Simulated assay, not measured.
Amino acid sequence: MTTVGLLYPGHSAEDDYPRLEVLLDSDIRLPVVHTDIGEDAHRVDALLKMGSPERLAAGVEALRLEGAESVVWACTSGSFVYGWEGAHEQVRALAEAAGMPASSTSFGFAHAVRHLGTPRVAIAATYPADVTEHFAEFLEKSGAVVVSGRDAGILTAAEVGTWGREEVLELARSADHRNADVLLMPDTALHTVAYLADLEADLGKPVVTANQVTVWEGLRLADRRAWANGLGTLFARPDHVADLVDVK
């Protein structure tokens, strides 16, 4: 049994995690503890408050009781807005409070890009433009090359959580670029797990989404490798990757 603890702000697309648990079809557990979202706004000042050490630390005892072996702050914007160094400090404080390895969705994206060996990325973000720019800067600090991006300009996680398959696919198509090796969709408020196979088939390249990579990052911290059908290139068996997508 491997248990990855997830700290998730508010309520939007957390039902992606039970779906991931089922698709992984193994002894992996993904308990979710909801943190105080404060003001639901994709605005830098609100996001900084959302990711404060006090709000994250409040959820760790419940995850310890669940037997978590690692913990991930399941929020991209509430970590990358701190900048590269600030986001490192955020997860260091979380690890100390939790007494276990810790990371965030933002670092999950950085590590996944390196793992896939695909440094040129396109960003398909639901956020306003200024928040999306913070994510691009964070990625570039990690060594990625951002070749294109699209921001949908949505202010609240609640609205993002209402999006379905067609909106997700349209955002991905509009953000993609022929020079991008991989497309990133950074909002954990966006339902994407059910559409991963469709996204990769449509774009013909790996697609990494926030809830998918959050779980991958937690498993990486727990030193647990996992593969699954339908969860994209990131969770594909190494000998099956070439069969899934024709990487551009």
Rank of each mutant, 00 (worst) to 15 (best):
P101D: 08
R225V: 15
S77K: 00
A236W: 06
V60P: 03
W216N: 05
A236D: 10
L169A: 03
Q212S: 13
E96C: 06
T192D: 14
A152W: 14
L30T: 10
M1Q: 12
A189N: 05
A41Y: 00
Y127M: 04
E69V: 04
L169E: 02
L56D: 09
V193A: 07
A236L: 14
T162E: 14
P101G: 11
A74N: 12
E133F: 13
T35C: 10
L65W: 08
A125I: 11
D151I: 03
G59T: 01
T192P: 13
Q90M: 02
A57W: 07
V147F: 12
V22H: 11
L30F: 08
A68N: 04
T35N: 09
P9I: 07
V193Y: 05
L48R: 14
V208A: 05
E89P: 03
A57R: 01
L47E: 01
D36L: 13
R43W: 11
E61T: 15
R92T: 09
V168Q: 03
R220L: 00
F135A: 00
G10P: 01
R173N: 10
V131L: 02
E21H: 00
E96W: 08
D45E: 15
G67A: 10
R173F: 04
R43V: 13
R64L: 05
T233H: 03
A201D: 15
T214E: 04
A110D: 07
V121E: 02
E21R: 07
L6C: 06
V160Y: 00
P9C: 11
L171K: 07
E54L: 06
I28L: 13
A197I: 10
S148L: 10
V91M: 04
Q212P: 01
T126P: 08
M1S: 00
T3N: 09
I28R: 01
A180P: 02
V215H: 02
L63C: 13
T105F: 12
W84P: 08
S106K: 00
V72E: 13
T76G: 05
G67W: 15
P31M: 09
H134R: 00
A62L: 04
A222F: 06
L155W: 12
D40Q: 06
P119G: 04
D239L: 12
L244N: 13
F109M: 02
A95C: 07
S70T: 05
L184E: 09
R114S: 08
A242T: 15
W84V: 00
S12G: 10
H177W: 10
S52N: 15
L20P: 01
A236N: 11
H11S: 12
V145Q: 09
E159P: 04
A175R: 14
A112Y: 07
R150T: 11
H177R: 13
A189M: 10
R120N: 02
V60C: 03
A226D: 04
G10Q: 05
G99H: 00
S26E: 11
G230F: 12
A74P: 07
A158I: 12
S12C: 14
